[in-house]
């Protein structure tokens, strides 16, 4: 089958396609500069082998189990929980292919409301225009709460005076057109040093939520602060600046407890208990998944959502969020049952 004459010893070089005599193709050159043509069939065989190698490495297929696809996209805040659930789910059902994207809550809803995805991770409730979009496209959906997050306002470790602030004080600092420059402007008796503010960028669900509950209107905020979409950058900034203040998701505070001081809001310090009970108010926020009702009729999607609610308590705490009460998960499951599925 192979017409090429391979040299018996010595290093072999493969050339680019070139013409020699009447042959054109890949050439082999041995150490004595003797050329022999690499036949087309050999090249083809190698290519086919490569393709098989690349494609043959698919995961194990569970012949008897569930099969199908579960397409998820949306918030980067909810991503770690959904990733954890998918990881566990795939171990039990290797035949189901779960994919999770990271387009952000808003970007994810665009895909969800046009029917491109089955589930959307959301760090805020669906907006009115998104609901309208869904109705227009005939998409029916169900909202499930899977965990809590507590937006945490943090200051530098050396800051020993700002331990507690009220919502009103936070609003004074962060509202559009805020006149607050120094700590003294917030409360008399605090030092007369300039505050350095850090916060998430305007695309983030964290920004949307914070501005809504603190400043009273979504997306209304002062903009002369250091903004970053990467919460770790905010953490680092606050760690390195004595007079820094900033806000981000609870997980970023709880992972950096030794390096940051957290501010109690209206006298309540964020921790698992106060966030779960809602006592850490108003900065404790629910995290959602939105499920397409039509997709729910598919067996593998139903299994995935059931699995999600069964394990969300344990898995969300593992990745740094706060679980709902047990009864609340039961309530979410009841929402599903109400749909008249199996």
């Amino acid at each position: 089958m192979f017409t090429s004459r391979l040299p018996t010893y010595g290093p072999v070089w493969v050339s680019w396609p070139r013409s020699k005599g009447k042959y054109t193709g890949f050439w082999l050159r041995n150490h004595r500069n003797k050329y022999s043509i690499l036949s087309k069939s050999l090249v083809t065989a190698a290519l086919i082998l490569l393709t098989i190698l690349l494609s043959g490495c698919g995961g194990p297929i569970d012949e008897n189990g569930l099969k199908g696809k579960v397409k998820i996209d949306g918030s980067s805040t909810v991503f770690p929980i959904t990733e954890a659930v998918s990881e566990e789910f795939q171990l039990e059902h290797p035949g189901v292919r779960v994919t999770v994207g990271l387009s952000g809550t808003g970007g994810g809803f665009k895909k969800f409301t046009s029917g491109e995805t089955d589930i959307n991770n959301a760090s805020r409730p669906m907006k009115e225009e998104e609901v309208e979009q869904a109705e227009e496209n005939g998409i029916e959906f169900i909202e499930l709460t899977v965990a809590f997050d507590g937006l945490s306002v943090a200051v530098n470790k050396d800051n020993d005076f700002a331990k507690n602030m009220t919502s009103a004080e936070l609003k004074k600092v962060w509202n559009r057109g805020s006149k607050i420059k120094t700590w003294k402007d917030i409360r008399r008796g605090w030092p007369n040093r300039k505050i350095k503010l850090f916060g998430p960028g305007t695309d983030s669900g964290t920004f949307d939520y914070f501005t809504e509950v603190i400043n009273g209107k979504e997306d209304v905020s002062r903009n002369d602060y250091t903004a970053s979409e990467d919460d770790n950058t905010l953490v680092l900034g606050i760690m390195n600046e004595r007079d820094a203040m900033g806000y981000f998701g609870y997980a970023y505070y709880s992972e950096n407890k030794e390096n940051l001081n957290v501010i109690s809001v209206n006298g309540v310090k964020p921790d698992n208990e106060t966030i779960r009970s809602g006592e850490y108010e108003p900065l404790s926020r629910p995290l959602f998944i939105y499920v397409n009702k039509e997709s729910l009729e598919r067996e593998e999607l139903r299994a995935f959502v059931d699995f999600y609610l069964e394990n969300a308590a344990f898995l969300s705490e593992q990745v740094g969020y706060v679980a709902l009460d047990k009864e609340d998960y039961v309530e979410e499951v009841n929402k599903l049952e109400g749909l008249g599925g199996d």
């Binding site: 490495c57 998918s86 990881e87 795939q90 292919r97 994919t99 999770v100 994207g101």
Partner: peptide, 11 residues
């Protein structure tokens, strides 16, 4: 919209 979590290789 390339994905982030995926537990299988492309086929």
């Amino acid at each position: 919209g390339a994905l982030t979590f995926i537990a299988f290789v492309p086929d």
